[in-house]
Design a protein around this nucleic acid. Structure first.
Length: 682
DNA sequence: TCCCCTCGAGTTCA
DNA sequence: CTCGAGGGGA
């Protein structure tokens, strides 16, 4: 352990983290008004925890993470809980879960259980507000918030308005029942819309709205908000003078709660083994957003109450249960560097290099910063701690900088005027009115490489087995320099590359051979002409039908095409009249055969607009697009009122919702294939 | 001139 | 998937 070697920076970081965590903790628990998400908060806490573990001598004393919950506010009467209120420890993956279960088995064996065979109960972990309800001889007498676990606030008057909480139980038992109060997502949206209209501050999330709604002086406000509650635990039970049996298991507790009239979440499962628990977790992970309540994981408890007693509690949490949390969708990390990248069109994109961090199941180490304006807006600096999230499930983005954790002596990021990464003289410029810098270096090697990558890529010549690595190797070995050189590569040239043996070389040469025949639109795309992408190239190819016609087209002729305006027309016109470009094009034409577009007789889908989303099982999205285009349809990238069909594969995202709201017809894969085969037959 | 609709470009990870 | 910007109809 490096007890002594703890640097001053680490100490300062820990201090700053503690102060910040305390600040956010107070906002969350005492004011119901957090400024950052729980996940970002958890991420900060876990960083502090790690630092403290690495330097044990400093972790002592009061760290905010030792405090359970918050101190009760003065607005409501403080009441001491008769049973201490705990919260479970968290685990984030199967390995951690299995460690917990191992501990349980060991403790049970050591606790005198000869052959421990615990079963588990898995339940939805609801993201709401924990409420403790006290019944005496079947009558509701008091309801408390969790508070700091020892003392809670009296919220009896508002909890009485929740319809899932019976005022009188169906049996005259005395009971301390614990549940989670939550606000349906629909209600959250409705209430926030209302508040916004009135100019009141909106709630950050449903949980805070629930907390705010329950902590009202006027119970009518609570009633109006339609708060719900699920009961999940019994802290104390007295069944004297009734014929009710005391529960022996967690499963029995849930059954009893339900029997006496308390609402219980129906989606729990009794699991014989830990792999059943994992299966439950896996089953619910993709469905977690489908319910009206927020779910941030699965609570796993040892079913047998006799075992629970043996296991007992640590200083902070019960040992008989664990919260198996869903992967966090937000986390904090540190910006280690800001690096510039140059694309095929010369656009210079700043990318943040990050200390690797797990978000939504994957390890993220880079995130785009888009452009200079975005860096200014966020004021991201090297060394900053930032909150990260995944935009649309895949692409990491920086949400905000945690200013409190900014190291001293940092300076705002200055976008360089010269970019050596560009090659050549590194000159870049920013066109007025545009947000991107473009590399304008003469003879930029980077740009040259980027264009060649694109030329062999999927949308252009699509040369199989020729990726960026191979292009680099060919360039470095000076085997190619321009597009045309690719088609004069000899077998011996390829064999000279590292890692290339007979089969690999033959495969590559076959791919090149196949690429010698190219549809006109693909040739257009491959040339890296600004603004000429997939669709525009197709448009132009369809219209002129030959390269010769395109080369001689006037500005007016170009602009006359529906979908081509002055900017695109100018870009193409100028390109076709640049001497270097013409020479390169002529050299290329000596080696390739262009297939000109022809009129199709079969136009079953003429005038129809298709949009694809999600993954199709039987064919790729590109293949599917090709098929419908062959039948005269147009394939668009986003859904609008004009869309004829949205073809939705597995894991369709936001497009499907949009299509539903616009009333666009949605086809699943089966229906789509049926439509295709009908069209090709007829 | 103001929107709405598209397209192009850039990007991450398993 | 998102953002910025071009194209075109109202």
């Amino acid at each position: 352990m490096k007890q002594k070697g703890v640097s001053k920076e680490v100490l300062m970081r820990m201090q700053a983290l503690r102060a910040l965590i305390e600040y956010h903790r107070a906002l969350y628990h005492e004011k119901d008004a957090p400024e950052i998400t729980d996940e970002a908060y958890d991420s900060l806490v876990s960083e502090l925890q790690n630092l403290e573990e690495m330097s044990p001598s400093i972790g002592e004393g009061v760290s905010p993470r030792d405090v359970i919950g918050g101190a009760p506010s003065d607005a409501f009467k403080k009441v001491k809980h008769s049973v201490r209120q705990w919260s479970f420890d968290n685990v984030f993956d199967e390995a951690e879960l299995s460690l917990w279960s191992d501990r349980v088995h060991k403790l049970l064996a050591g606790g005198g259980v000869s052959k421990p065979a615990p079963t588990y109960v898995a339940e939805h972990k609801i993201d709401g507000l924990k409420v403790v309800v006290v019944y005496e001889k079947g009558v509701l007498v008091r309801a408390l918030t969790r508070g700091d676990g020892i003392t809670g606030e009296d919220i009896t008057h508002t909890v009485r308005t929740i319809k899932d909480v019976p005022h009188v139980l169906k049996e005259q038992i005395s009971l301390i029942a614990v549940g989670e109060a939550w606000l349906p997502h629909k209600e959250f949206v409705r209430i926030n819309a209302l508040r916004e209209k009135k100019g009141e501050p909106v709630f950050a999330n449903p949980r805070n709205a629930a907390a705010g709604s329950v902590r009202q002086l006027d119970p009518e406000i609570t009633r109006e908000r339609n708060i719900r509650m699920f009961f999940y635990d019994i802290d104390f039970i007295d069944v004297v003078n009734t014929d009710v049996l005391s529960p022996d298991t967690q499963e029995d507790e849930l059954a009893l709660l339900k029997k006496v009239g308390c609402t219980v979440n129906p989606h729990f499962a009794v699991c014989r083994t830990l792999s059943d628990v994992v299966a439950y977790y896996t089953k619910w992970t993709p469905k977690k957003d489908a319910e009206q309540y927020g779910m941030d994981g699965v609570v796993v408890k040892i079913n047998e109450i006799s075992y629970q007693r043996i296991l007992g509690y640590t200083a902070k949490a019960p040992r008989f249960g664990i919260a198996f949390k869903f992967p966090a969708e937000q986390a904090t990390t540190i910006v280690e560097d800001i690096v510039l990248q140059v694309g095929r069109t010369g656009v210079v994109t700043p990318v943040a290099h990050l200390r690797p961090v797990r978000i939504a199941g994957s390890l993220v180490s880079r995130a785009t910063l888009h452009n200079e304006d975005q860096i200014k807006r966020l004021d991201v600096r090297v060394g900053d701690t930032v909150i990260m999230q995944k935009a649309g499930d895949v692409i990491p983005e920086i949400v905000q900088v945690v200013l409190e954790l900014r190291p001293q002596k940092t300076k705002p990021y200055v976008f360089p005027r010269k970019v050596p990464e560009c090659g050549g003289d590194g000159a870049i410029e920013r066109v007025v009115g545009e947000s991107a810098y473009r590399c304008v270096a003469k003879n930029s090697d980077t740009l040259h490489r980027a264009r060649l990558y694109y030329f062999v890529g999927k949308h252009a010549f699509n040369i199989d087995g020729m990726g960026e690595k191979i292009v680099d190797a060919l360039l470095d070995a000076q085997l190619i320099n321009s597009y045309a050189d690719i088609f004069t590569l000899a077998r011996g040239d390829v064999l000279a590359l590292p890692h290339f043996k007979d089969t690999a070389a033959d495969n590559l040469l076959t791919s090149i051979e196949r690429a010698r025949t190219v549809p006109l639109e693909r040739l257009l795309i491959s040339l890296s002409i600004a603004h000429i992408g997939n669709e525009t190239a197709r448009l132009i190819a369809r219209h002129f039908k030959s390269l010769a016609a395109i080369r001689t087209a006037t500005l007016d002729q170009l602009e006359a095409i529906h979908g081509i305006g002055s900017v695109v027309a100018h870009s193409l016109y100028v390109w076709m009249r640049t001497k270097d470009h013409m020479e390169e094009l002529d050299r290329l034409l000596a080696h390739v055969t262009i297939v000109n577009p022809e009129e199709k007789e079969e136009q079953a889908f003429l005038g129809q607009i298709f949009v694809f989303t999600g993954t199709l099982a039987t064919l790729s999205r590109d293949e599917a697009s090709e098929r419908v285009r062959d039948l005269g349809a147009h394939v668009a990238s986003s859904v609008s009122k004009k869309t004829t069909y949205l073809v939705a594969g597995v894991e369709a995202g936001s497009k499907k919702e949009l299509a539903e709201s616009l009333g666009v017809q949605i086809l699943n894969e089966e229906q789509f294939l049926a439509l295709l085969s009908r069209a090709t037959e007829g």
